[in-house]
Amino acid sequence: MNAGAPVLEVRDLTKSYGGVRAVDGVSFDVAAGELLALIGPNGAGKSTCFNIVNGQLRPDAGAVRLGGRVITGLPPRRIAALGVGRTFQVAAVFGSMTAAQNVQTALAAARGGTFDLWRPARRLGREQALDLLAQTGMAAQADRPASTLAYGDVKRLELAMALAGEPRLLLMDEPTAGMAGTERREMIALVQALTRARGLAVLFTEHSMDVVFGHADRVIVLARGRLIANGGVDEVRRDPLVREVYLGGAPTEARP
């Protein structure tokens, strides 16, 4: 793909816990319209790096820029307001609310307001919420309580909620975790389509290599806190060091 200018710039991030460097001088960019996978073995530093970008952790050194603006150390709420959306490995939705009400709540939060189910204001944002649900394949589930949704639909609902703030950058932690093969591929294909349509920059962590090698535009690999590879899918899949420390010694082909 021909990516645009960087939306996210990460430079020389370092974070230590005691004498252990969880992240050690990591640098990378994510461009508009790009789906970038962050992978690596357990303990590689993926979550630490992810949480520094999101503002949940403050680095010991280095900088994070969003659209050229330094956001290093800002709290997550402030970073979200600047255009960063987030989904989690375990989806965070309100089970007692309908799918539409969940998205309306996210819309209200993005606007700095509040949401009350028991007042006429509950109708505010409903049309926009329904549009976001339609974009994520959830239109038919709009009035179902989130607690009754299938797991894959909950993940789609969380994606719609993340899009409510009209982010420039979307951070996705294990977006297909817990899904069966077909459902995984459908979910990441949806994310890929939204990335293109909206010009989003997407950074995601993922353990499923069929998802990574089948859909990512580019892959970065961490091992023991250091960046050991950064390139296209085929380049990274065949990298000898990546194969040694993560892929088990042989190139991993994308599954159909």
Rank of each mutant, 00 (worst) to 15 (best):
A142R: 02
E244G: 07
L157G: 04
D210A: 11
R243N: 13
N102P: 00
G85Y: 01
G67R: 01
V64E: 05
M97H: 11
P256D: 13
S16M: 10
P41A: 15
N102W: 02
G248K: 10
L13E: 00
R218H: 02
V233Q: 01
P76G: 05
L159M: 07
V212E: 06
N102Y: 00
R77F: 15
A106W: 03
L203C: 04
A146E: 02
G18H: 06
I71F: 12
L36S: 05
E9K: 12
Q101F: 04
A254L: 08
R224T: 15
R122V: 13
R119A: 15
L36Y: 13
D153W: 01
Q89I: 03
T195H: 06
R69E: 12
M1P: 08
D239G: 11
D173N: 08
L241E: 14
T252V: 15
Q56R: 08
S27V: 15
L107H: 01
T148Y: 05
N2E: 13
G73I: 13
V219S: 11
D239H: 14
E174W: 08
D60Y: 09
A80V: 13
M179Y: 13
P59L: 09
W118K: 10
A110T: 09
L190D: 10
L190C: 05
P59R: 07
P59V: 12
L117W: 11
V10Y: 00
L171Q: 04
E206V: 10
R238P: 07
S96R: 11
Q101L: 02
M179T: 13
E34D: 06
R184E: 12
S147D: 10
A162G: 11
P59A: 06
E253R: 14
P175E: 07
G55I: 10
I39A: 06
G152A: 14
G68A: 06
L190R: 05
R123D: 08
A193M: 05
